[in-house]
Amino acid sequence: MGQIRIENLSKEYVDRRRQKRSPTSPKTHGRRVRVLDGIHLEFDAGEMVCILGPSGCGKSTMLRIIAGFEQPTAGAVWVDDRRLNRPSPDHIFVFQHSGLLPWMTVSQNVELGIRHMEDEKEKAALIQEFVEMVELEGFENHYPYQLSGGMQRRAELARALAVNPEMMIMDEPFSGLDFLTHMKMREEVVNMHQLIGKTILLVTHDIDDALIMGDRVVVLGGRPANVKLDQRLDFSHPRNFEKDEELGRLREEVFLMLGVSYAV
């Protein structure tokens, strides 16, 4: 169950701003800007897929289409033989900036995905279980504004996990965190993935994130964007660039691919 196929996926946006500004061609319906161009990818169920790419290349756009928030211009996303085209609790999105509802406490947020459960006791126990999993016990009745950035991310993770989704779609879940929290969250997500084995699509800016966490790394690039690299990573955890020479070489390759030769 759960093989994901992204087939020939393309997305165009209509640039409406430009339409008003060009009096020379008043009748055009705005310039169409192609963001994604014929993306083709296949993942197995339970894989952790890390997606890299320069800023503005269309990573968030691709995730939004997979989540069903937006429709592709061409192509489709399939899970086995079922087409994904609308949002569903089966694939939970973790937002680039916080997606917690600020007027709800941590436990109310975690409850969102299981709010229809009939047995109140069972539901409360489940909420407690996931709050504890992300180490937020004691903060159940806190509002998001009372939490630090890292705690907010963990609360959102707990909310996603509580639904027991087939797939989690995470858009830069570590952005805006300090270095230490970033490292800890990285570890937590890896542990969580090994524990529950969900399919995870994770977009990140951080090449090391992708190479250390992923079962597979995908690099998008170009304008419009397509797949520049799609590589399985069969290294055991915990990973280390010194220990795994091959991983170190791959890291250099990805850095160069993203146009950076200095950091290597």
Binding site: F95, H97, G99, L101
Partner: peptide
Amino acid sequence: PVFFQVARNFNFSRWETISRIVVPA
């Protein structure tokens, strides 16, 4: 708009979107 995407992601009914997103927001 992120709040409405959360609502769709968690399968909110129209009424839930009003009462649990719009009104508190």
